[in-house]
């Protein structure tokens, strides 16, 4: 019964989770929240992570009721993500792995999301929509790889939402996406925005530029409300995501769809995906904010799968990487 501890800090969340054979024993997390109108910069985010990572680690052990000697392996996010925060977390993971004499497991962050989603929902072989502040991909498993069927050709969908929130000075607490979602519920009018699906890929930067251009003028002339803009942006972005996911499902013949990543806890996205799945006779799987949003347990879970199939990462190979594609990982734990 291997027990794996996972460290995640590739963006503005720092989390440490402990997993034992599919059971999440603890999963504490802290979020670096910036003032309205501001994004999170790598060096400030790394400073945030440095200041609380050891407290989060102690909390994870305490909550799980475990001692370091009960841990069998130490997993951490190798990438992708922001360099400075990734190094901060990797340094602590390497230190405790050496102090405790346990093997290291360098985990691909995207694979962490997929494995956590599979664990929590029980989805067997889903077509995965992975949507977050840094990534937007439609993924399906084949021949030992999580293959990318479609993705963004510029910014991530969550980045588009986060940056729109900055334009309107929407609060980043608890997250800009959550606040946009709440405002969108009060939207009455659909403002027409560019719709940019390119084959299996999507593009969001033009939509963001467009809405940045028109937002202040439309609000000043009372053509629409901030709530209408939130609503319109969500409807447009999510329709694009549903379209490429549906096309991937038609191609793979898959009857399961799984949404992972921070944007995946948006209930309107889940609702739109649910309608698409229902029309196709497929089943939708989604998780709530505990597991959708970056957390340590997802890294522990992917690490647990790696460890179970005999993979470990040597210290020399434990360097972090800002770019690390989902399909670079050989999935040795699935048939």
């Amino acid at each position: 019964m291997p027990v794996v501890i996972g460290f995640e800090g590739s963006a503005n969340k720092i989390g440490v989770g402990i997993v034992r054979d599919g059971e999440v024993l603890s999963n504490p997390r802290r979020t670096y929240v910036t003032p309205p109108g501001q994004g999170f910069l790598p060096s400030d985010t790394a400073r945030h992570h440095r200041s609380c990572i050891l407290a989060v680690l102690q909390e994870a052990l305490h909550e799980a009721g475990l001692k370091p000697s009960d841990i069998d392996a130490v997993a951490f996010t190798k990438g992708p993500g922001m360099g400075a925060p990734l190094v901060t977390v990797a340094v602590v993971a390497r230190t405790v792995a050496q102090l405790w004499g346990k093997p290291l497991l360098g985990v691909n962050h995207c694979v962490g999301h997929i494995e956590m989603g599979r664990l929590v929902t029980g989805a067997q072989n889903p077509t995965v929509l992975y949507v977050s502040g840094g990534n937007t991909q439609v993924i399906a498993y084949s021949e030992r790889r999580y293959r990318i069927f479609g993705e963004t050709i510029d910014i991530a969908v969550g980045n588009c939402l986060d940056r729109f929130a900055r334009v309107l000075k929407i609060s980043n607490d608890p997250s800009p996406g959550y606040n946009i979602e709440q405002m969108a519920k009060k939207g009455q009018k659909l403002v027409e925005l560019p719709y940019t699906v390119k084959g299996m890929d999507v593009s969001f930067s033009g939509i963001l530029s467009h809405i940045e251009d028109v937002a202040h003028r439309m609000l000043a002339t009372k053509e629409c409300t901030p709530e209408d803009l939130c609503f319109s942006l969500q409807e447009t972005l999510f329709a694009m995501l549903v379209e490429i996911t549906e096309r991937a499902m038609a191609h793979t013949g898959s009857h399961e769809a799984l949404i992972v990543g921070g944007v995946g806890c948006n209930e309107r996205l889940q609702e739109m995906m649910g309608i698409m799945c229902q029309e196709r006779g497929a089943k939708l799987f989604a998780t709530d904010e505990r597991f959708c949003i970056d957390n340590g347990a997802m890294i522990a879970q992917a690490g647990w799968e790696m460890f179970r199939s005999g993979q470990v990462t040597s210290l020399e190979d434990s360097w972090i990487t800002q770019r690390y594609r989902t399909d670079e990982v050989e999935v040795t734990w699935r048939d």
Partner: peptide
């Protein structure tokens, strides 16, 4: 950045 990481290593050693 080296000093930041070094002090984090030392703090981790102190605790664990």
């Amino acid at each position: 950045s080296f000093l930041d990481h070094l002090s984090l290593v030392v703090e981790t050693m102190d605790l664990f």
